[in-house]
């Protein structure tokens, strides 16, 4: 029993990281209809940027802040202006293909410009664990959970309680209606891209100590975020959270009780079952096809 709880706790922690990446994914989709196949590389790039800052002598917190600024400029504004804006009118497929191109380019640039090897990244939480009611919980898992929860709650508060946040929601739900109400839709969409960039940096901060900084580290996290978003419901923010945590926990359970060999596979099974049985996702709403 204890081991089951332990598996669920550590799975939830891993899942929380997936959820953060998935959250950015759904936000982009809601606001602008962008399916970003480079989402994983959007996590990889900040990991290396932080690494560079630290090699240059900056402490981790400063590296993190500097990277947030850089990410907002490059992965937020730059991504939107250079790639999404000119492409979105061609429809979903060209944009998806373009993000595939971006993903490939980013990986190669890091590999060729820096190195193909993995690099160590400092952990932000202490090693070791504590025991509570017979269950071992590691400090790293606890820290990850708390940090992820803080970010999600902050985001939720921003979206539901502030004027800007509500305007963003309105744009996501119905761009034209929002415009009629006098909302600056373009600006709201830009905000979404900025939030996505920051979420990517936080994800990088949490996941790189375990994944190690490597040019292709984004492949795994990007795919997980993608699955999590669909499982939970592509058009629902809460769906991304549920999907992420569900994948994290199930992976741990399958890896332990069945075989680690099919660990990756079971998240996929879940994904296939969900899209067949409830294609709009567990929490998603049926979407009218936009023509």
């Amino acid at each position: 029993m204890n081991e089951l709880i332990q598996l669920i706790v550590s799975g939830t922690a891993t899942g929380a990281i997936y959820a953060l990446a998935a959250l950015g994914f759904t936000l982009l989709w809601q606001a602008s209809g962008t399916i970003n196949f480079a989402q994983g590389d959007f996590v990889m790039l900040p990991a290396f940027t932080m690494l560079f800052c630290m090699i240059a002598g900056a402490p981790l917190w400063l590296a993190f802040l500097a990277t947030c600024v850089a990410a907002m400029l490059v992965l937020g504004v730059g991504f939107k202006k250079v790639i999404v804006d000119p492409l979105i009118r061609h429809g979903v497929i060209p944009l998806v293909i373009a993000t595939l191109g971006v993903s490939m380019a980013l990986k190669t640039i890091v590999r060729a410009g820096y190195s193909a090897e993995a690099h160590q990244f400092p952990a932000i939480f202490p090693a070791g664990q504590f025991t509570i009611a017979g269950v071992n919980v590691s400090w790293a898992d606890l820290g990850t959970l708390v940090l992820a929860a803080v970010i999600v709650i902050a985001l939720q508060t921003f979206v539901t309680r502030t004027l800007t946040g509500r305007a963003m929601q309105a744009v996501a739900q119905n761009t034209d209606a929002a415009r009629v109400l006098g909302i600056d839709a373009k600006r709201m969409v830009l905000y979404t891209f900025l939030i996505n960039a920051i979420l990517a940096v936080v994800t990088a901060l949490l996941i790189t100590p375990t994944y190690l900084a490597k040019f292709d580290m984004g492949d795994s996290i990007g795919l997980k975020a993608f699955f999590a978003a669909i499982i939970g419901g592509f058009n629902q923010t809460r769906g991304a959270l549920l999907g992420g945590v569900l994948i994290g926990v199930l992976e741990n359970l399958v890896g332990f009780y069945w075989s680690p060999a099919y660990k990756e596979g079971v998240a996929l099974m879940l994904f296939l079952v969900v899209i067949l049985w409830r294609p709009e996702g567990l929490l998603g709403k049926v979407e009218e096809r936009k023509v």
Partner: peptide, 20 residues
Amino acid sequence: QVWYLAVFGIAVVALMIWLP
């Protein structure tokens, strides 16, 4: 040789923008 995929990736983006 080393940068091929980077150039290819960027070329794909450019292609999608100007010649989808």
